[in-house]
Design a protein around this nucleic acid. Sequence first.
DNA 1: CATGTCGGTGAACAGTCGTCCACCGAACGG
DNA 2: CCGTTCGGTGGACGACTGTTCACCGACATG
Lengths: 218, 218
Amino acid sequence: MARPPETRQEGKDRTRRKLLRAALKLLEKRSFDRLSLRQVTKEVGIVPGAFYRHFHDMDELGLALVEESFGSLRGMIRSARADVPTWDDAIVRSVETLVTHVHAHRTHFRFLVRERAGGTPALRAAIEDELRAFTDELAVDMRGFPYLGDWDEEDITMLASLVVATVMDTAAALTDLPRDRPEVEAAIIRTTERQLRLIFLGVPHWAPRPSSRHAGSG
Amino acid sequence: MARPPETRQEGKDRTRRKLLRAALKLLEKRSFDRLSLRQVTKEVGIVPGAFYRHFHDMDELGLALVEESFGSLRGMIRSARADVPTWDDAIVRSVETLVTHVHAHRTHFRFLVRERAGGTPALRAAIEDELRAFTDELAVDMRGFPYLGDWDEEDITMLASLVVATVMDTAAALTDLPRDRPEVEAAIIRTTERQLRLIFLGVPHWAPRPSSRHAGSG
DNA sequence: CATGTCGGTGAACAGTCGTCCACCGAACGG
DNA sequence: CCGTTCGGTGGACGACTGTTCACCGACATG
C-alpha cells in the first residue's frame, strides 16, 4: 500500500496528464471551441484556478494535444517504413497501419482532423506545420521508390502532399464512424487503397516538366 | 422615391437574409461554435429574442448557410461543365473556376471547410450529404471522358471522390490565405493542377480488376 | 528543524450566454 | 373598419464563462 511519497514534480506532471486526458475525453462530445477551462478542471476534479498552474491558456493545452497527437503519428510512419516488395504492398501496408493507429488513437485523430480546419489560428498553424513536416518526411521516404529518384523536389512534394491529403481524408472519415460498422470502414479502406493505387499508377508516366526548362539529373 | 410599403413577408425575409449575412460576416473572425445568437442579432440590430422569429436554433441558421454555400457551388460546377478539348484543359479550366468562386464566396467556403470537420453533428451531416451529391454529379459528368466510359460505378465514384477531396483541400488552403499573397496562391494552384494531372495520368492504365500486375513503362 | 516554494482551494468578480415573457404597433384579412 | 396576426421590443432569469486573489498545507531545501 505505502507507495513512496510523490515528489512535487511528479504530482504536477500527473495532474497535467490528467488535464490532457480529461480534455481529450470531453472532446469526444464537444468541439475544442466549446470546451471550457472549467469543464476540464471539473472532469479532473480540481478547482478552475488550479488550471493556471499548468497552462496559461486553453490554447496552450490545445497545442500540447497537437504535440501528443503527432507523437503517435510519428510512431505510425516509422512502423510503416518497413521495406516492402512492391508499391501495392506498400500501399496496403500503409493504409493498414493508418487504420490501426486511428483506432488506437481515435480521440487524438479526431481532435487533429477537427481543429485543422476549425480551430483557433494558433492551433491551426501548429497542426499545419506538423502536417507539412510529415509530408516532407514522406517525400524523403519516397525518394527510394522506383521512378521517383529522378523527380525534382517540387514534384515529389506535390505527390507527397496528395498522398497526405488523401490519407487525412480517410482518417477523418474513420474517426466519425460508429464503432460497430465494420463494413462501412472496410469500404472506406478499399476506396483509399484504390485511390492511392491510381495515383501511383500515373507516376511512371509523369513528365518531369510540362514545358521543358532545365532537364534534370542523370 | 416613395417605395411601396414593405409587405410583412418581405420584411421578414429581409431580416432573415440580414441574419445570414451577419452570421457569415462574424464567421470571418470566430468559428461557428463560438458564434452566439446574441452576437448575430446585435450585428443585425435586433433584440436577441427576435432571433426565434426566424430560426428555432443556431443550428438551423447553420443549415441555412450550408444550403446557401452549396447553392453557389452548384453554379460553379455548372459553369465549369463547358466542353473542353483535352483533360489538361478541363483541369486548368476547372481549377480556374474553383479559384474564382472561392474568391467570390470566400466566407461561404471558409464556413464549409471549417464546419465540415468541426461543426455540430447536424452541420457535419448536412455538409457531408451535399458533398456526396456533388461527388456523384462529378462522377456522372466524367462518364463522358475518354477511358472512363468503361469504368464501373464504384471506380468512377472512387475517382470522383479523390478529385473532390483534392479540390476541397485546395479550397481550404485558399480560404486561409491572406488577400495580399498572390504568389502563394499561384503556388497552391499550380500544385493542385499537377495533382489532378497526375491522377488522370493513371486513368488509362487503370485495370478494372485489382489483380497483381506491374505498370508497363512508356 | 526552520523556511520557503508552490499546487491546489474556495470565493468572488464581471461578462456573456440561451431562453422566456408581456407588450407594442403595423401589416393583414374578413 | 375592426379584430387578428406577428415581427420586433425590453427586461428578466439562471447558468456558465475566464480570471483574480488570499490562503492552506505538504513537499523541498538549507
